[in-house]
Design a protein around this nucleic acid. Structure first.
Lengths: 159, 159
DNA sequence: TTGACGCCCATAGTACCCCATGTTATCCCA
DNA sequence: TGGGATAACATGGGGTACTATGGGCGTCAA
């Protein structure tokens, strides 16, 4: 077991936290996430609507690449490909961190996520997500159920 | 403090202990576990919510690496890849040992484990677990029952 | 104007560093 | 073998830096 550079370890989005939206519509991005943003040198944050979930995916420019690769998998002659592109880029929000490390939650995000007065931030490695806490809990339970099934089916354990 | 000899034995998480959480929400990681952490060179501890148990799995970053390598094998645009990332990144957290070898028990951990004012630490070899003592006792009884059944061979394995 | 947004400051709560204390375990010596 | 000295450990608490959160005010544009 060897140590691989500490940087490579600490610069990913991990863990989750719930923060409150204030009267001005601002919410603090968790300090740990801000540190990752800075460490990765992201100048700006891009927030995209999750393709099949009620959450925002937030990350740097590389996040756009990921989405485009995803869309490229669709047949370019099909309506769905065009729809996806429109869906992702159409209103693609671009988040600005203020001096105190907060972002403003726009109606665009509220509409897609159901976020009202609290935001659940969820680290996902190369990006993070913003959820309405209740919906996150529901989704998390579904994920666990699927993973359990997967594990029992293949009898393959990550351990 | 240098532990000499017994390397093969001392660099594994073994045995169990129950420690109390203080008024500030801190709990001491058993000294023996801390020695293993240091011996393995872990700078940071990675804690993950157990998939089918109300416990936290805690280990070094190699624990996270193992998951991430597993994810890398998946098609990144399949649901299973997304689920795995959601689990190991979103349901994971970094724990920081303070100078006295304590960690703070967050709500994130309490929610999943039911831990209130005491933590049961259980060594599991390459990692250790944190339990609410009562639930650990229940779980332990179930494990023993299963093992006993297996040994007696009175039952075909239940599918 | 009004309302959205940037910048600044204030404050409560939390996380972390350092030191103290009591208890247990370990060792040494009579 | 017993008993005291000593070391290691879990636990408690004070002070401080950091974080999340609330709010004031000025700017700019509709």
């Amino acid at each position: 077991m060897r140590l691989q550079g500490l940087q490579g370890v600490m610069d990913r989005f991990l863990s989750s936290a719930v923060n409150r939206i204030d009267a001005k519509g601002r919410v603090s991005v968790p300090a740990h996430f801000r540190a990752v943003v800075q460490k990765r040198g992201y100048q700006e944050l891009y927030a995209l609507r999750g393709l099949d979930i009620a959450a925002m995916d937030v990350g740097g420019l590389d996040l756009l690449d990921r989405y485009e690769r995803r869309i490229a998998l669709e047949d370019p002659f099909l309506q769905s490909s065009d729809d996806m592109s429109f869906f992702c880029h159409g209103d693609g929000a671009f988040l600005k961190l203020d001096q105190d490390g907060r972002i403003t939650v726009t109606d665009f995000m509220r509409e897609h996520t159901g976020i009202a007065d609290e935001v659940a931030f969820v680290g996902r490695g190369d990006f993070f997500q913003m959820w309405e806490p209740g919906r996150l809990a529901t989704y998390g339970a579904q994920v666990r159920a699927r993973l359990l099934q997967l594990r029992q089916g293949t009898r393959e354990r990550p351990e």
